[in-house]
Amino acid sequence: MYSHLPHKADPNPPQPTTLRGRRPEFTDDPMLDRLYAITLALVTELSVTRARVDTLERLLERKGLVDSSEVENFTPDESEAAKRGDIQQQYLDRIFRVLTE
């Protein structure tokens, strides 16, 4: 975050997320452009989630392992919950990319 400060020189700085070159605006309202970007990211992420659910369902079906009530009543344990929290945060990072880059 403070990589521009000389005394914080990091020998291996992370790749910056800002792009050289202006991001074009296609609508008359900058908020609408942002809303498009967020919506498209959501579209993508929902599709990713569907693919994952499909993978799981196919695997469970192949192995005859799980029925749907087990899915409905599932509660994660502490470390599972923490991992899920990370997933949520990374998810939001992608959805709100246009507001942060």
Binding site: T27, D33, A37, L40, A41, T44, R97, V98, E101
Partner: peptide, 23 residues
């Protein structure tokens, strides 16, 4: 405009996806 927004955003998302994988 809609076509452009989809095209531009797929390019940006493609870059972010690659950057996160590589990073």
């Amino acid at each position: 405009r809609a076509w452009s927004l989809v095209r531009r955003n797929t390019m940006e998302m493609r870059q972010k996806t690659g950057r996160d994988i590589v990073g």
